Every structure is written in structure tokens, then in C-alpha cells.
Simulated scan of single mutants.
Amino acid sequence: MGAVTPLAKENKPTGSVKPIVDLTRADMERVNQLILSKAGSDVQMIPEVANHLISSGGKRLRPMLTLATAAMFGYRGEHHVRLATSVEFMHTATLLHDDVVDESDLRRGKSSARMIWGNQASVLVGDFLLGQAFRMMVETGSMQALKVLSDAAAVIAEGEVFQLAVSKKMETTEDDYIAVIRGKTAELFAAAAEVGPIIAGAADADRVALRDYGMALGLAFQLVDDVLDYGGSSADLGKNVGDDFREGKVTMPVILAYQRGNEIERAFWRNAIEDGVNDDAALEKARMLIEKHDALGDSIARALAYGEAARAALSPLPMSPARHALEEVVDFCIARIS
């Protein structure tokens, strides 16, 4: 199976990041300058490792969410730039840590930092970036924003540990898996979308709406990544296709294929995921079984449902360029599988 199961033409989203990129362009230039400044250190290895990942071409959706949601309520200060930079540093730190835990060779199409500088440097530079993120949060003087992002840091770590606990276990349930990705991926999307209205002084109801939007968007985003790992390309993922399989990760397509399989097929999955028999031939068989049981199609359906939940969360908010940009981001995330 060489391609992702296509969406029906009438259901295919056609979103774009252009509206949010255009909306936040001036502020993102300031974020990028602050990123370079705060990633600096007299310890030469710190900026080398940090900039290797920071400059590797990520779309920086999470900080753009903070900037766009602050703009939605007319914020004109400076603190949204610090919060957006904090969000990006938190994300970068988790990527550095994840690559060590997952023993990943590639990140965004390049050799991962751990492959160049080693695991110890990757972990410690990730810790440095988290420290810088919290410094910038404190500089805003917003205890509410600090609480949201510090809570997110704890939840993300819990999600990563929970993923480690269920890794290579084929009895992982769909509910378990949603709990994992809610923590390790969706929580930072939610926090990024929530701190914008906080710093802009928006009403509590608006904060909740945008947090709900970010959470649903993050869940959809991760489910799309799950699908791409079995039917996308390295360019789509920024890592090797099949890495989740080789690392023994039990993701949504695997859970669905395992639940729907016969005993012989379940024995294959246990052998591949739990016992590590995951060579190229096993990957091809995994893809065949996932296709046989429509596990990609149903994973896509779940991503679409979370995408609809994200759009619904925005419905109480007045139409504006920022709301339009956020809606387009939802469609863009889903469209990666079309």
C-alpha cells in the first residue's frame, strides 16, 4: 500500500496556512528574532543544538495560534510575542526529548540532534529551552498565562510517560491512546490557543472556546500523523515513514487493525510490536492488514471528527480574519492526508 486512503472528493478539506501566516507575519518576525536571542548562550553547544532544530523548517503553528488568538481580541502589547516564543521553545524541547526516548534518526528530514551531538546534549539543551520558556512567561507578569503553560508542561510530560508505559503493548485501548495524544500533543495546542485570549484580557468563555479549539485541533493533527506513518512520505512527516511501527508504537491504525484481526493476524501484531520483529517485510504486512481492515479510513474519520469539533468550538466567536485563519488551519491539518 503506497498511498493514504483518499478522502471522498466532496469531503476533502482544502485549508491553507496562508491566512494565519499573513495575519501573524509581523509578530512572527519578532518571535523569530526572540527565538534566536533566547537560544543564545556562552556555552557553544547550546545554540548549536538548539538552532539545528529551530532552523529546520517547522511551520511553527503553535506560536502562530498564540499570536492569532491574541489578535482576535485586539491585543496591542508586547507580551504575546514572549508567550508565543515560550510555546515554540516548549515544543522544541519536547522534540529534542522525544527523539532521545524514541531513538529517532531523523527530525524534519534532517539528522536528529541526538545523532549529531548525542543523547545527553539533546536532553540538556531541551531543559535549557524549557528554562528560557519559563523565564519569558514570568516576564509577561501574567499568572494566568504562567499557570496554563506550566500546567501544560506537566501534562505533556505525563503524556510522554504514559506513552512509554503502553508502548509495545497490543492490549492498549483506543481510550488509552486518545489519553496519550491528548497529553503529549494536543495539550500544547490547547495552551497555545488559550494564552492569547488570556494576555488580551478576553472573557472566560472565549478562553474556554479557544482552548477547546486547540485541544481538538491537536488531536486531529496527531491522528493525521498516525495515518501518514503508514501511508504518507518522509516529506510529509519529517521523519522516516514506518518509524512508529519500528519503534513499537501502538497508534490508532494499529489498534483498529489489531481489534478487527483474526487470531493469526493478532499474533503477527504481537510479534511485530511487542517482540520487535519489524523489518521491511513486516512493515509491508502491517500496511496490508491496516488496509484490509480499513484502519486508515477509520483513523481518518476520527481525525475529521476532531476537526469538526475544533470548528464547532469557534462558532460562538464573532467572524473575523483571525477566526477565518483558525478555521483554515483545521482544514490544512486534515488536508495533509488527501
Rank of each mutant, 00 (worst) to 15 (best):
S37H: 10
F245E: 04
A39M: 10
E328I: 02
H324S: 11
A8I: 09
A281F: 09
A50V: 09
R76I: 08
R114N: 14
V195A: 02
S86C: 13
S111Y: 12
A84E: 00
Q163C: 12
K59I: 06
G15I: 07
E158R: 08
G276S: 09
N278D: 13
L296S: 11
E139A: 14
L314E: 05
P47Y: 01
I273M: 04
V166G: 11
A145W: 00
D225A: 12
M136E: 10
A152I: 08
A209K: 02
L124K: 09
R211H: 13
A303H: 00
S56P: 08
S111M: 13
E29N: 08
S320R: 07
M137N: 09
A257Y: 01
R211E: 12
D27H: 07
D229K: 00
A220Y: 07
A26C: 03
E263L: 05
E171F: 01
N119P: 05
S111Q: 13
D206L: 05
S56K: 04
K38W: 07
G183V: 12
G131C: 12
R302G: 01
K168D: 07
A145S: 13
L237Q: 09
G248F: 04
L53V: 15
S56W: 06
K249P: 05
A325R: 01
I199K: 00
T140P: 02
S86R: 00
T172A: 01
A303W: 01
G196L: 00
L317D: 02
M45N: 07
A282V: 11
H91F: 15
A322W: 03
L53G: 06
D175Y: 05
L317Y: 06
K9D: 15
G141F: 10
R182M: 14
D22W: 04
R60V: 09
S142H: 02
A235P: 01
T94Y: 12
A281V: 15
T14W: 07
L65M: 13
D280V: 15
R323D: 06
V21A: 08
P47L: 03
E139F: 06
M72A: 15
H324M: 11
A165E: 15
M64Y: 08
V81M: 00
V250A: 00
R270G: 02
